[in-house]
Design a protein around this nucleic acid. Sequence first.
DNA 1: CGATAAACGAGACGGTACGTCTGGTCTTGTG
DNA 2: CACAAGACCAGACGTACCGTCTCGTTTATCG
Lengths: 212, 212, 212, 212
Amino acid sequence: MQAAATIRTEPVRGGGRPRSESTRRAILSATLDLLREESIQSITIEAIAKRAGVSKATIYRWWQSKASVVIDAFMENHIVHTPMRHDIHPAESLLQHWRLLAEQYSGWAGQIVSQILAEGQSDKSIQREFRERFYYGRRAVVREVIDNLRARLPKLQEIDSEVLMDILYSPVYMRLMWGYGPIDAKFIRDFPLNIFLLFGLEFDSDGHVVEG
Amino acid sequence: MQAAATIRTEPVRGGGRPRSESTRRAILSATLDLLREESIQSITIEAIAKRAGVSKATIYRWWQSKASVVIDAFMENHIVHTPMRHDIHPAESLLQHWRLLAEQYSGWAGQIVSQILAEGQSDKSIQREFRERFYYGRRAVVREVIDNLRARLPKLQEIDSEVLMDILYSPVYMRLMWGYGPIDAKFIRDFPLNIFLLFGLEFDSDGHVVEG
Amino acid sequence: MQAAATIRTEPVRGGGRPRSESTRRAILSATLDLLREESIQSITIEAIAKRAGVSKATIYRWWQSKASVVIDAFMENHIVHTPMRHDIHPAESLLQHWRLLAEQYSGWAGQIVSQILAEGQSDKSIQREFRERFYYGRRAVVREVIDNLRARLPKLQEIDSEVLMDILYSPVYMRLMWGYGPIDAKFIRDFPLNIFLLFGLEFDSDGHVVEG
Amino acid sequence: MQAAATIRTEPVRGGGRPRSESTRRAILSATLDLLREESIQSITIEAIAKRAGVSKATIYRWWQSKASVVIDAFMENHIVHTPMRHDIHPAESLLQHWRLLAEQYSGWAGQIVSQILAEGQSDKSIQREFRERFYYGRRAVVREVIDNLRARLPKLQEIDSEVLMDILYSPVYMRLMWGYGPIDAKFIRDFPLNIFLLFGLEFDSDGHVVEG
DNA sequence: CGATAAACGAGACGGTACGTCTGGTCTTGTG
DNA sequence: CACAAGACCAGACGTACCGTCTCGTTTATCG
């Protein structure tokens, strides 16, 4: 998870004052500060610059848009941190991962993610950047575990991995974007159990799979 | 499906020049015109007023925001039109409805919907308005059919109707918002079949349910 | 001496909120205020807007440049006011007029005039505007009196009126621009007497011509 | 005519890399290049640095302002070159000198001079520098010849030398600054003859004085 | 010959102001 | 009263230069 949605990724050594690392961090952290208070839309580059004690030009030198700054800030600070275990039954892995994700999305992180997605609608380069830097990585991790699960469950073998991922994860984003149905304790508890039931899997009270 | 996300819903009868219907229509159709060319974000109230040959103040008098105008335009013109049949097997109904929806979302209508959702992220009143005027209606229609289907399929009875709806429809919105995976012919053909397979249903080449 | 270095000179009657006269005056007087403290160069449109309690856009709507605003402010407030008498001997008229001008140019008014001229060097439209609205008028008044004087003095008849005007008035501007030689009491007293001596005219202690 | 409106006039001998003469020349000639295309106002230090292939800091190390660089470039390259003859009648000397000056001021040199004067209005140190390095020298040369002329003409003896200089030279600057009346062939031919006529001097067709 | 020290290029940086734009409000006159 | 027209305030936009700074790299002089 490397950072920098910058114009020049490489420091381009050779003459010139080197880029100030502290300035870069000040910008990203000022951005997160502001995001705690208001939406991406209502944040201005000017406000970021002011809070970071930095010139607007410096921000424009390294990022092409407000949303790019947000994505960088988002990525560097592990705003969403959902590790995937590989030492347990894949269904349990998925369950834990899903619940962790949903929990995080129920708060501030969800607000940021949904707002980045919103920005992406009118600026496709933002959409692409976020997809490539955030989405693809986590999709790859999930796909691996889903494949393991499919190998164990004959009835899932006819169904596409992508479809299975979509079934599990899309509803979280759906709720995020529509604001319909809260991502609350009940949803976090019940929704994945319903899905796994459809797959023919049940969990006991300890959260362990009860293969039927 | 009555329109008017207006400030004053009622014409405030009693004296004075009545609201001009032609002006209202001019505004909505100018809005759709502009939406054909650019995103909601990049459209301005001023541009709508200019194209409609109308004063900015008139727009502000009746709508509170750009997005409200868009929602009105969207609703009045049946931008998304997906009737639900009740005279056939509920699974067939759902399949047809889903495919119609996906098809429409693959084009201009999808762009508008995703952009309204985007606007909704930074303006929760927009989100609520769109949800109440667009989303709830269609969810109710779908829920009814889903309930019919659950009545016929024992294995679905343990699963929440909301979950089933989410499984079917969320992935469409997911693709819309992330721009990941096109809503293309292949997706429209295969995705619902995968889902119904999970429900234990198959379709023959005529699109009729083959209850297993 | 009518004012308005505006883009549209005419109010463009027919619909629309009329231009606010108080706003216009606030801008011009804020400009004069600032000119009392600093040079045209160092004044900013932003500062004028702020001091006038007015939006920048309003200034840009009516004036094309900072210097245009200054010229308007300068003209409307009769910053330089040097009436020319016609009821006395033309030489006395000229003497009084010249001394009044020099006196005014020795102070704040001179600073403004020299700075407008300076602005005019890099923006020829400013130069032309100032020339046409300020310079031509006063030159016409002076020329008339100079012509009267020439009619009385045979030795001046061979010399161009423009040349005579130049001889009298250029040195004032010369001192203004070069900052060489102050426009002080001594200069104001002696210089015109020297010139008139060259014309063959002397003045007695009451300031009356002593035709030799 | 040694140059250097520099901060440190002395090379500060003792250790360190000596100042690069080629860099200095590159800066001055880049400046003149740019002056051929645009006004001092619109030229930027950045543009000079770029064109000269030099760092901005190097310019700031040796000059305190853009105008200082221009003055240096102006002086070193003898942009205005008007030698004064001492072997002929002082009136002829003056006539020739004046015409040479006016001729040069009618072109590019006049543009530069007027623009330096303009810069001097908002930066008095520029005004002083230009006056001391350019103006005083030539005024001294002219004064000497004027004094010679006064010695020969009884009627000029009562009139100040400074006044006589002003009469002759101010109108040129007047036209430069106001842009009123071109410095053209007619002006160059007639104006000085008018002045000398006032002094009681005429010239024959060979340009020789005809003392009346 | 090596140490020292200023000159120099490159270019990042905090600033300031630019002139433009949009949002939302207000103020006219007309129908 | 609705409405068109459009002036107006507010304030962010992204850009351009400013003058300063921090680098690494010359290029001289002096010990």
